[in-house]
Amino acid sequence: MHIAPLRARDRLRIAELLRHDHGYAVRVNGVPSDESDVDDLLTSRPAGTSPDQLHSFGLWLDEASLAALAVVMVDWPQAGQNWVGLLQADSRHSGQGHGRRLHDELLRRLPSACWRLAVVDSNAEAISFWERLGYRLTEERKPWTSPAGEQRTALIMELSIPQTD
């Protein structure tokens, strides 16, 4: 098992993982994942950010088996904060701690005192996973429109990490 940055050559493995998503894409986006989601995962970033702020990592069981992936924007939405855009495990490997392992490695590789993410209300069952990792719901709520045009609410969660010098 190893964790490595995801690259364009990993497209087929990423697409396969996105197809085995516990129904995440339909719950959140209103439609199943497709090839454009792979491109978005590897290249999409918020306006005004630079490519070096976008980090995509995969947890590989072996050279051909991608068990989990994560996308993080560093120093976004403001300096000193990292934003988890996605952390997803392949449903065929769920319950084996791969998401936690990948998350722990992100904290090590991309140190920050503050980590934030959004859980879309239609995927609220994910809140307990994030709480087990130390995240807490904030009072922030943001309107969000899914790719299928469905109105949702994004619930913002935050993890504060005490910094040692």
Rank of each mutant, 00 (worst) to 15 (best):
P5G: 00
R9Y: 04
R19Y: 07
H22V: 06
Y24L: 15
R27K: 15
S33C: 14
E35I: 05
D37L: 12
D37V: 05
V38T: 15
S44D: 10
P46F: 12
A47I: 13
S50A: 07
L54K: 15
H55E: 11
F57P: 00
F57V: 13
G58P: 03
G58Y: 05
W60G: 07
A64H: 12
S65L: 06
S65V: 12
A67D: 09
A68V: 08
V71Y: 00
V72P: 00
P77S: 06
P77V: 10
A79W: 00
N82Y: 01
G85Q: 13
G85F: 14
Q88A: 09
A89Y: 03
S91A: 14
S94Q: 13
S94M: 07
G95V: 05
H98R: 08
H98F: 15
L102M: 03
L102S: 02
L102T: 02
D104V: 00
E105N: 13
L106M: 11
L106H: 00
L107E: 07
L107A: 11
R108M: 01
P111S: 03
P111K: 00
A113H: 09
C114T: 09
W115D: 01
R116K: 08
N123F: 15
A124Q: 14
A126Q: 11
I127M: 06
S128V: 11
W130A: 01
W130C: 01
R132A: 11
L133N: 06
G134Y: 13
R136Q: 09
R136I: 00
W144R: 15
P147C: 08
P147H: 10
R152E: 06
T153M: 15
A154S: 14
L155N: 09
E158D: 01
L159R: 13
S160G: 05
I161P: 14
Q163V: 12
T164C: 01
